[in-house]
């Protein structure tokens, strides 16, 4: 048995190296590339180029501007796919009622773990909100911020208890409502520029951010915010905030549902 496994490992390793050689020397993948492809150069040069205002996105962060501006509709559908996965998860546990009385004893771990969890729990939402707000300036964005935020309820479930979380109002219905609110906000921001364009008797596309040559409507990139000229990059800032709301509520919902005790509905599944 041992000899067979070692033989298999050696064979797989040798095959991997041969495949890597083949991939490189047939030119399918680049070996130590010495420059960017033309498309990448176009994106890198034009996202924050105020002189090419007809193709710019108004954001110095190239990944966010491709994600929410140039390929915006794709990202909206991707968020919808995640929403559908959460809906499927809720369907699996649809007969379960999440009440404080039925969500565990609520004892938690030791005092050491509880104290450190409280300190960490206070900082996680701040960091997540910071990532979401700076999503159009630095690497990060709505999804990353939401994933960071969802660590907070996970920590509370692990160290304190699920019961505390449910007592404080992190129930199933409220989180689902927040998730839906985030998705609706994304939809509204997607059609806000066309609505503005209709009011001004011009044309615009869905998910349009900055003004184009043939569609001269758009939100301005630099906004006067309480007397300070701030770079909000048009719709990108608001899209990041809505995605942050949607993803943080959705992932928290997933964690709460996965942690819920199942005594009250185990029988039901078995008799189905």
């Amino acid at each position: 048995m041992e000899k067979r496994l070692i033989c298999l490992g050696v064979c797989i390793t040798v095959t991997a190296f041969i495949l890597a050689f083949a991939l490189i020397y047939t030119g399918i993948v680049p070996l130590a590339p010495t420059g960017n492809r033309p498309l990448a150069t176009i994106f890198l040069e034009s996202t924050f180029n105020a002189e090419k205002w007809w193709i710019w996105a108004g954001s110095p962060e190239v990944v966010t501007s491709i994600l929410w501006d140039y390929r915006g509709i794709d990202t909206v559908y991707e968020t919808t796919v995640f929403f559908l996965a959460i809906i499927g998860a809720i369907t699996v546990v649809r007969t379960m009622k999440l009440l404080p009385e039925t969500s565990g004893k609520g004892r938690g771990l030791t005092v050491i773990a509880k104290t450190i969890t409280k300190i960490t729990f206070a900082t996680i939402p701040i960091i997540a909100f910071s990532i979401a707000v700076h999503g159009h300036l630095t690497p990060g964005g709505g999804f990353q911020a939401g994933s960071a935020f969802a660590v907070a309820p996970l920590l509370v479930i692990a160290a304190l208890s699920l019961r505390l979380l449910v007592e404080r109002g992190w129930g199933k219905e409220r989180l689902l409502a927040l998730r839906t609110t985030g998705l609706i906000l994304i939809g509204i921001i997607a059609i806000i520029v066309p609505i503005l364009a209709i009011l001004r008797h011009s044309i615009a596309y869905i998910m349009q951010n900055q003004a184009k040559l043939w569609a001269p409507a758009g939100l301005s990139a630099v906004v006067d915010l309480l007397g300070v000229k701030s770079l909000l990059s048009g719709t990108l800032f608001w899209l990041n905030l809505s995605e942050f709301l949607a993803v943080s509520a959705g992932l928290s919902l997933v964690f709460v549902l996965l942690a819920a005790p199942t005594k009250n509905f185990d029988k039901e599944v078995k008799t189905q």
Partner: peptide
């Protein structure tokens, strides 16, 4: 634009990570 890396694979990866999470 000369020195930065290609952003397009990174965008595709962000999308793929969300789908993978779903």
């Amino acid at each position: 634009a000369k020195y930065a890396v290609d952003p397009i694979p990174q965008v595709l990866v962000v999308t793929a990570i969300v789908i993978g999470l779903a």
